[in-house]
């Protein structure tokens, strides 16, 4: 227990120092890269809650990531144009409003998708979640008001009272703070009474039903919580990149989130963050050397899936256990 706390604190401090390190070494892109990896880590961690802890293989998780992003984009669009969404809701650039709104809307979307998808299981569940994500993808492509295929530019990052959000480092620390908070939230969640029920459902749904648990309700609640987390990550990403596009919810993005989870370690807390960091670093590093970076990524991924059980977390634990 103690050791875990020390490691977590150390990792947090190191991550908090990234902007300084970037300035000292002149590698200004570091802050941006680590920030993005943290946000992907949040999205992957939210997926991991249903996938790793709950056993629900959702292949449409990027939809909620994208919806969260679009909430920020659309609110900014109306704020900028001085118009109102559906003629009713005025836009805003206040992060204290946009982030909760993104979480809420993504949660509603997850409730809708989950309520229908969770009636199926197995392969059908994988495919129906993919189908819903595709529907959202094409829905946003067809909304010309919000940029259609091109998406929405958010010229300025949302503001937070008392902070200069135009400063890259400040924005990074906000992201880091939220990522840490989300990590702690998930840590609590999997240890909670609800987390135990979800773990039970993953292992043996029939047994849980025989104990009086209406598994559908619990799975739906988990699905909604997970979608909310992805919505938060998406909202942060749009703030970070100042851009929302349908690509955020493309099916290959859902696949990438799954890769991050597997790579890091299914059903572990830190795994998705590690997986996101590794995949994102791998992609950006390889992309610098070759335009065919997808080939080595594909081969590495294939090797990881074929040879390892438990991803990088299992590897770390093995190393930690021996050393």
């Amino acid at each position: 227990m103690k050791r875990e706390h020390i490691i977590l604190a150390a990792v947090f401090v190191v991550l908090a120092l990234v902007p300084f390190a970037a300035e000292l070494t002149g590698q200004a892109s570091w802050t941006r890269l680590v920030g993005q990896a943290l946000i992907y880590g949040m999205a992957a961690a939210s997926l991991n809650f249903i996938l790793g802890y709950g056993g629900m293989v959702s292949f449409g998780h990027a939809a909620f990531f994208g919806i969260g992003g679009y909430v920020v984009g659309i609110m900014y669009h109306h704020f900028d144009a001085g118009t109102a969404f559906l003629g009713l809701i005025p836009g805003t650039d206040q992060m204290l409003i946009t982030l909760p709104a993104a979480i809420l809307i993504a949660g509603l979307a997850a409730a809708l998708v989950g309520a229908m998808s969770l009636r199926t299981g197995g392969v059908q569940f994988i495919m129906i979640t993919l189908a819903f994500a595709q529907m959202f993808f094409f829905l946003f492509i067809s909304l010309k008001t919000y940029g259609g295929e091109d998406g929405i530019m958010v010229r300025r990052t949302n503001s937070l009272p008392g902070l200069n959000m135009r400063d890259k480092a400040t924005l990074y620390w906000v992201v880091l703070g939220l990522a840490a908070a989300y990590y702690l939230f998930l840590r609590r969640l999997v240890q909670s009474s609800f987390g135990q029920i979800i773990a039970g459902i993953r292992q043996n749904e029939r047994r849980m039903a025989a104990m009086g648990i209406s598994t559908y309700r619990y799975k739906l609640y988990a699905f909604v919580l997970s979608g909310m987390g992805a919505g938060l990550a998406g909202a942060l990403m749009v703030n970070f990149l100042r851009f929302a596009s349908p690509d955020m919810m493309h099916w290959s993005r859902s696949g990438e989130l799954m890769i991050m989870v597997i790579l890091g370690g299914v059903g572990t807390l830190a795994g998705p963050f590690i997986g996101a960091g590794v995949l994102f670093t791998l992609e950006t590093t390889l992309a610098r050397y070759t335009e065919h970076w997808m080939l080595p990524v594909g081969i590495i991924l294939l090797l990881v899936v074929m040879t390892s059980k438990g991803g990088l977390m299992a590897l770390l634990r093995r190393l930690g256990g021996k050393g």
Binding site: R188, S192, G195, M208, L225
Partner: peptide
């Protein structure tokens, strides 16, 4: 499962 509180997400089981 019998005792309830199964939707609590902030407690420690």
């Amino acid at each position: 499962a019998r005792e309830g509180g199964n939707f609590r997400i902030f407690d420690r089981a």
